[in-house]
Nucleic acid binder design. Structure first.
Length: 275
DNA sequence: CGAGCAACCTGCATGC
DNA sequence: TGCATGCAGGTTGCTC
């Protein structure tokens, strides 16, 4: 599921169920996630003070510290009632005051849940993260300045969480298409102007996806459905071999940084020397 | 230090 | 139908 828009959609979906409620208990039924889940027992009965997001992590602030949740590749949260039968890969319940629980399911177990009593932004998972793509520090100049010595493909550059967070495989491909940049170009050869286009594209696409995600919010949180919003607006991801929506050339697919990357060889010509 | 890649897991679509 | 293969929206941590 989750790239940044899906995580933000999830955060917005669960926030009203959590805020100013009491966390009655965290029931760790199966602790085998990316790292073994260990939550202190005295979190039970604490008040939930905020539900925030940093990168693809959801931060749930309680009276004694923060829960740091990551959905990995296949994690999801559903709102359930306590009598809902346990399904395969239901790992954790956040038991909230009132007649519902938040149930975490993760087949591939790439997700994680941590607790920290300290400042969550100093936690080892968060402390080295790059800037937020929708925040003020992110810009074309920022991407340009951080890329001068980088020989990796520009696609890897924007997917590097130490540079900018939240840009996953789907949105990286989409942003490069919409800014006309060839994904395989070395990052240090992309011009300032091209990075300006790219930064705008990243912002636009992510913001847009979050907005559209909002419309499917209720279904998403309530029923564990996969949000269907993005398929419609995707221009390249998953469309290899199909005609480019701009020029009708068949889209090509290439593995870059071990991830498949779809692009249009006609529309994405920016190689770093020109515009 | 940067770059490249293996690893962590299961589920699903595909092809024989 | 059964089985093998390849691929999947993320991230860490190992090598060189």
């Amino acid at each position: 599921m989750p790239e940044l828009p899906e995580v933000e959609t999830t955060r917005r979906g669960i926030e009203p169920f959590l805020l100013k409620r009491t966390l009655r208990n965290v029931d760790v039924r199966d602790p085998r996630l990316r790292w073994p889940v260990e939550i202190p027992a005295d979190i039970s009965g604490t008040l939930i003070k905020s539900v925030r997001r940093r990168a693809k992590y959801i931060l749930i602030e309680t009276a004694i510290g923060h829960l740091i949740l990551h959905l990995g590749m296949s994690g999801s949260l559903r709102v359930v009632t306590p009598d809902e039968p346990i399904k395969l890969h239901d790992h954790i319940d956040l038991q909230i005051s009132g007649n519902y629980w938040l149930r975490y399911n993760d087949p591939r177990r790439f997700g994680s849940l941590h607790f920290t009593a300290g400042n969550p932004f100093d936690h080892w998972l968060l402390k080295d993260l790059g800037v937020e793509p929708l925040g003020n520090e992110f810009s074309g100049d920022y991407l340009f300045d951080n890329s001068r010595r980088r020989k990796v493909a520009v696609k890897n550059h924007i997917m590097d969480g130490k540079v900018v967070v939240g840009v996953g495989n789907i949105y990286a491909a989409e942003a490069l298409f919409s800014s006309g940049i060839r994904p395989s170009v070395p990052a240090h050869r992309v011009s300032r102007r091209a990075y300006a286009r790219l930064a705008h594209a990243i912002r636009d696409i992510l913001a847009n996806a979050i907005n559209v995600g909002g419309t499917t919010l209720r279904d998403f949180v309530g029923s564990d459905g996969q949000p269907g919003y993005f398929k419609q607006s995707l221009n390249v991801y998953g469309r290899q071999g199909l005609p480019c929506r701009t020029c009708e050339q068949p889209l090509r697919c290439k593995v870059i940084g071990q991830r498949s990357t779809v692009f249009c060889s006609r529309c994405q010509k920016t190689s770093g020397w020109g515009a």
